[in-house]
């Protein structure tokens, strides 16, 4: 992490507040705190913010606030950032059916790592993953913190269509495809939960800075949740992150 954030112009209507040049939970926490501080300040001229791994893109209206004034205001926020988050990070539970037709590559992931399929499931579902950022496609979460015991390289030839909700592994990363898309990840399971629904408010289930946890379910539960979602009766389980 830098001692002081860098302010980098991204044209005449946005700037990037860069906190470091690595991927770490500490930097992510700082970004989250900064995001909340700016949002709470209701500083005039801020249009929207995009948190990423190690920076925050701030779009603004220069007719309301000029670059230098904005930098000054942001520096003040930075200097007064506190860790006393009024909103503790949430943990979003993602019910996931592993293996079978839902996760055709789970066997390969097990073999590649010399462990059993059950162990893959156990390892994958036993920790909270920090959502560093959302990008690539609407609602796609960039997650951190997967165990190296289940690291598996991408497929040599990407699949042309992976159904929405599919959970995959690519190298050290794990993630969920929010919409049907092509991709080269090793597919290990699927969640019936919708990560992205353009007609919902908000349209995307996850937020950067929060955590998610995969909860193994069987096919009966999968179908039951799917039905509840169709009937608009399903509520995603969200808990607070235990403060260590």
């Amino acid at each position: 992490m830098y001692e002081k954030a860098k302010f980098l112009p991204a044209g005449d209507k946005a700037l990037i507040v860069e906190f470091g040049d690595s991927i770490s939970p500490e930097i992510n926490k700082k970004i989250r705190n900064m995001y909340i501080a700016i949002e709470k300040s209701q500083l005039e001229g801020i249009i929207e913010m995009v948190p990423t791994y190690r920076s925050l893109l701030v779009s603004y209206n220069p007719l309301k606030i000029k670059y230098n004034d904005l930098c000054q205001a942001l520096r003040e926020f930075e200097d007064n950032l506190t860790d006393t988050d009024s909103e503790p990070a949430k943990v979003v539970e993602i019910p996931t059916i592993y293996g079978g037709e839902y996760g055709p590559d789970i066997e390969f992931v097990a073999e590649h790592n010399n462990i059993s399929i059950d162990e893959v499931i156990e390892i994958h579902s036993s920790r909270n993953y920090l959502i560093y950022m959302l990008g690539f496609t609407p609602g796609f979460p960039y997650l951190g913190g997967m165990s190296e015991k289940i690291e598996t390289p991408r497929l040599k030839t990407p699949r042309t269509k992976i159904p929405a909700g599919t959970v995959g592994i690519a190298g050290k990363q794990t993630g969920i495809y929010p919409i049907d898309s092509p991709g080269g990840w090793q597919l290990i399971g699927r969640t019936p939960v919708k990560l992205y629904d353009p007609f919902a408010d908000p349209p995307v289930l996850l937020n950067s800075g929060d955590y998610l946890r995969f909860v193994p379910i069987d096919e009966t539960e999968y179908k039951s949740i799917l039905k509840q979602i169709e009937e608009n009766k399903y509520e995603v389980k969200i808990t607070s992150l235990d403060k260590e």
Binding site: A14, E18, V50, T52, G135
Partner: peptide
């Protein structure tokens, strides 16, 4: 390390040729 893109960002991948990002750009 991935960061935000705006309308007009000029990115330069490994091939060395600039790409100007337009309205439908990814985020």
């Amino acid at each position: 390390i991935s960061d935000g893109i705006v309308f007009g960002s000029v990115q330069v991948p490994g091939h060395g040729s600039p790409i100007v990002m337009m309205a439908d750009r990814q985020t």
